[in-house]
Design a protein around this nucleic acid. Structure first.
Lengths: 230, 230
DNA sequence: TAGTATGGACTTGTATGGTAGATCAAGTGG
DNA sequence: CCACTTGATCTACCATACAAGTCCATACTA
């Protein structure tokens, strides 16, 4: 417990079992492989993923902090159900954070990362034409992450990632047609344009408009799959 | 793994060992009992708190998600050092989130909670006169939490709590004189006034002004205790 | 002397057995 | 028929043992 020990630290992306299970579970929940209300058992997941219960348990703790699962002591663990009230707060939080990011991006933005963004948008535009859902969403994540990194807001991006998980889950329910995919790319372009013009208000507006759209179809999903909501 | 199992769930504040250790560690880090750079060993903490390594380990996982500690696989765990770059992002994030909260509070705010706020402010004002640091900070937390709850943003408050931990740690380093304590209370009053007047812009400005002040003395601390920074 | 093995004392990561609490169904007594 | 008890069977929780990686002091070698 002695203070001031150097511990030279050279960052690690250790591919531990816990991290692996955590990532797989997170993906499974977002992609609705484990839909809201699914009952998860530490032991069952352990045998399924061929690890012991301990890594599973630690992964579930992480996911419960994000809010993707609820651990009920001595009773069980379930995939969190969707709540409109919760989603409203998620939207507000993400809007506030990402708006702050783009506003800061208007002040200063890493030119190298700015250069990489064009390629991301191009990839996304092509995927939109082909209706390639996987590539679209992957590029979407890269785009928003690039904005945060370029604005020197990587720590804020970590927070956004957590709230984003909830929105991604909902978006996975709303089948995206190609038109809305194209609109998505246009909105991204509008955000970049505003940053290029160093116009904070415009950037703020573009970002909020972009994020608002994601939950547009939430009421429809609520009507169709009431069992996913609480 | 069957979906749609009811699992009636009646929320729990289970006082588990993990939660206990997590809370004690969190407090110890914020209060500088374990200053930045302190080397924490799972085993050592376990014997100190008279529990096994497992709850300690799980507590550290939670704290590492917040960013209060860094777990270096096979090497050790240290209390995260303060970084001005990181603190800047923390401030931006908290400003964005709490600004969003008060703006929403201007739209609708639970009248019952509105009533309880006056008592909180009065307590804080009295504590400010007496220079009672503990009561001041406790009331500060209650105040901000009440704002979030009254605006129906409890989930956002959970996020704020995490970033707030970093700011609390810094504030603990900057000795507050009674004048700045009184200013604190005045700023709180200004925020409530803006909400009462349903003036989002005014509320936003008051909140940002309030939060900006907390890190005012960060450069001074950096000069005095460089070993706390990275 | 300078450089390099090497072994031991750490660290966190993982596996597993046992415990207490929660749930629910069957059984019991009123 | 209903309220209550009981016990089997789940669950997450915790403790312990083991494995694997890192670091460092020491001894050995060129």
């Amino acid at each position: 417990m002695n203070a001031q020990t150097p511990l030279p630290l050279g960052h690690s992306k250790a591919p531990s079992a816990t991290r692996g299970v955590s990532e797989r579970l997170r993906q499974a929940i977002i992609s609705m492989e484990f839909p809201p209300g699914t009952r998860l058992s530490e032991g069952e997941i352990a045998t399924r993923y061929d690890v012991s219960r301990q890594p599973v348990r630690e992964a579930l703790i992480s996911l419960s902090r994000i809010g993707l699962v609820q651990v009920l002591p001595q009773r069980g663990t379930i995939v969190t159900r969707i709540s409109t009230r919760h989603m409203m707060q998620v939207r507000i939080a993400r809007e506030a954070l990402e708006s702050a990011i783009v506003q800061r991006a208007c002040e200063r933005f890493d030119p190298v990362i700015r250069g990489s963004i064009d390629a991301i948008l191009e990839t996304q535009a092509r995927a939109a034409c082909e209706g390639d859902y996987m590539t679209i969403t992957a590029a979407d994540s890269q785009f928003h992450a690039a904005l945060a990194t370029g604005a020197d807001c990587e720590m804020i991006w970590q927070i956004v990632l957590d709230v984003k998980a909830h929105m991604d889950r909902v978006r996975h329910l709303t089948l995206q047609d190609r038109d809305s995919m194209r609109i998505l790319v246009e909105q991204h372009r509008a955000i970049v344009d505003a940053i290029d013009q160093r116009d904070p208000e415009k950037a703020d507006h573009a970002m909020r408009h972009h994020l608002m759209e994601i939950l547009r179809d939430l009421p429809r999903v609520l009507a169709e799959r009431a069992d996913y909501f609480e």
